[in-house]
Computed example of a mutant assay.
Amino acid sequence: MGGLRDEEQSFYEAIGGEPTFRRLVGAFYAGVASDPYLRSLYPEDDLGPAADRLTLFLIQYWGGPTTYSQTRGHPRLRMRHAPFAINEAARDAWLGHMRAALDTLELPADQRDTLWQYLVNAADALRNTPG
């Protein structure tokens, strides 16, 4: 019966839980901080709160604790991003930094590909400006 636990393991647990998502988001925001174009899209002087929000969201989405919803309510990603002009260039810049961050994790190919496909789909879904 030990095999049942493996089948029930969430993606969150399979990739290493909170520390993995913190490393991913930390590496991502290090890239954002040094990108003049993308950095201009973040209204806060300190990227720390944005990093915390993204970390908690990803943790919850992938099966970890629901701290994001407990503190911020329903994710409503499109609504929360509506005030920002997210065009193809912004999406591509975001994905470029996220890809570099994802590669630092050295996940097995299947896990890396699963996470990457989600990130691409999410970035595409949040585009709200032509071009």
Rank of each mutant, 00 (worst) to 15 (best):
E13C: 04
Y12W: 15
T66V: 02
W94K: 00
N128L: 10
L105T: 02
E7M: 08
L38W: 04
R127V: 13
M79W: 04
G16W: 06
T67C: 03
G48A: 15
G63D: 09
L95V: 08
A30T: 11
A125K: 13
Y12R: 10
G31C: 08
L4A: 08
L115I: 14
D113Q: 14
H81P: 00
D46T: 06
G73H: 09
V25G: 02
A89N: 12
I15M: 12
I86G: 00
L115N: 02
A50P: 01
R23W: 02
L126Y: 07
L54S: 08
A100F: 07
G64N: 10
A123L: 07
L56V: 01
A33C: 04
T104Q: 13
E13F: 05
G73C: 09
F11Y: 13
P36I: 04
R5Y: 07
R23N: 09
T55K: 02
Y12K: 11
R72L: 04
R80P: 00
G48S: 12
R72A: 03
Q9R: 15
A109Q: 14
M1E: 14
W116E: 11
Q117K: 13
V25Y: 02
P49A: 07
D103I: 07
A93H: 08
S69L: 01
A85D: 10
Q60P: 02
M98D: 02
R72F: 05
A51Y: 02
P130H: 06
G17F: 07
P108G: 10
R5W: 03
L126M: 15
E13L: 12
R112W: 11
Y61F: 15
R91S: 08
R53M: 06
S40N: 11
D35S: 11
F11A: 06
G64I: 10
N87H: 12
Q117F: 03
Y37K: 00
L95H: 06
L58H: 09
A85Q: 12
S40C: 07
T66W: 00
R72V: 07
R72I: 06
P83G: 03
L107M: 07
E44M: 09
E18D: 12
Q111T: 05
D6N: 12
P108W: 01
D6Y: 11
R80F: 03
H97G: 03
A122F: 05
Y68V: 04
A33R: 14
N121V: 06
L77R: 05
M98E: 02
W116L: 12
G31H: 04
L115K: 02
A122V: 15
G2E: 12
Q117L: 10
A51S: 13
A33E: 15
R5N: 07
E44S: 11
G3R: 09
L54W: 06
P130K: 05
L126H: 05
A125P: 06
T20G: 08
W116D: 09
P65R: 10
T129D: 00
T71H: 10
A125D: 10
A122E: 05
D103T: 10
G26V: 09
R80K: 15
N121I: 05
D45I: 01
D92M: 05
Y29W: 04
E18I: 04
A50L: 09
G73N: 09
P75A: 10
S69A: 12
F21S: 03
I15A: 08
